[in-house]
Amino acid sequence: MSKESGLPPSYSAAEVAISLGCSEWWVKEQVRRRRIPFLRSGGGYRFTSDHVREIFHILEERPSSANAIEGEVVPRRRTAAQPVGPVVSLRARRPRRARNAA
């Protein structure tokens, strides 16, 4: 686009993916799930520089102030949830054709 039009430049999903260091598919998936801002133009997705800044802000992770002061390391993965009730063993049924043949 020319600077004379007064319109902000727009970027494709591929260009945004390069700036984020991820795949184009990931960017489009986030758009489909409405997790990041975008423009729909002619059936495609376009992004303004404001959108890209907001995407960076959405994806940004900052340490909490307590952890930053104490120097603790926050685990990045979630721990597995502990089972609430008793564990139930499951048994497979006999296939229907085996029941009918017997």
Rank of each mutant, 00 (worst) to 15 (best):
M1T: 14
K3N: 13
E4V: 11
E4I: 12
E4R: 07
L7S: 12
P9Q: 04
P9W: 01
S10I: 08
S10D: 04
Y11A: 08
Y11I: 09
S12R: 02
S12Y: 00
A13N: 04
E15Q: 15
A17V: 01
L20E: 01
L20Y: 00
G21N: 06
C22K: 15
C22A: 11
W26N: 12
V27E: 01
K28M: 04
E29H: 05
V31H: 07
R32S: 09
R32F: 06
R34I: 14
R34Q: 10
P37F: 00
F38Q: 08
R40P: 00
R40K: 15
S41W: 01
S41D: 08
S41G: 03
G42L: 02
G42E: 03
G44A: 12
Y45A: 05
R46L: 06
F47E: 02
F47I: 09
T48Q: 00
S49T: 04
S49A: 14
S49E: 11
D50R: 07
V52A: 06
E54A: 04
E54N: 04
I55P: 06
I55S: 02
I55G: 05
I55N: 02
I55M: 02
F56V: 08
H57P: 02
L59M: 14
L59C: 11
E60D: 10
E60W: 04
R62S: 08
R62V: 03
P63G: 07
S64T: 13
S65A: 12
N67F: 07
I69D: 13
G71Y: 05
E72R: 15
V73D: 11
V73S: 11
V74Q: 13
R76H: 04
R78I: 09
A80I: 11
A80M: 10
A80R: 15
Q82K: 13
Q82E: 08
P83V: 14
P83W: 05
V84D: 04
P86E: 07
P86T: 14
P86R: 15
L90I: 10
A92V: 04
A92R: 15
R93A: 14
R94F: 00
R96G: 07
R97I: 11
R97G: 05
A98Q: 10
R99A: 05
R99H: 09
N100V: 12
A101R: 13
A102M: 05
